[in-house]
Amino acid sequence: MNDKPKIVIGLIIFFAVFTFPFWYNHGTVSSAPEPKLSDKAKQARQCVRDTEFMRTEHMQLLDEWRDTVVRDSERIYEVNGKEYNASLSNTCMDCHSNKADFCDKCHDYASVEPYCWDCHKYPKEKM
């Protein structure tokens, strides 16, 4: 028995499958997204926490807020002596009112679909 032709076909399939990312992108360079800050956010200079923290942990902060607000009706988030209203729509989206240019930029790039908007409405964008 000599099954070399079949095996070679199998290997070609193997090669095609395992190099999928290389030929799917066919070498097109895609640059990392740059979320746009709205004017109000630029003026504020500082978010609730520092940029580095917000970049990696904002989802956990929001999750925490949701639990404290909904379960304990504790609406005030205190940090560095400042008090914030723990609210996605009223605090976050007050500055970051441009969902498409801010939130969605990275979320789309990293293929993240947050379920914030299942319940929350986002403000109408005025650009």
């Binding site: 990312p21 992108n25 097109t28 990392a32 997204p33 990696t56 942990e57 990293a110």
Partner: peptide, 17 residues
């Protein structure tokens, strides 16, 4: 926690040569 956008920048660089 790591910054996933930076990681995708690196991995996309690898995938696009």
């Amino acid at each position: 926690k790591v910054d996933v956008v930076k990681i995708k920048e690196l991995t996309m660089g690898l995938a696009t040569f």
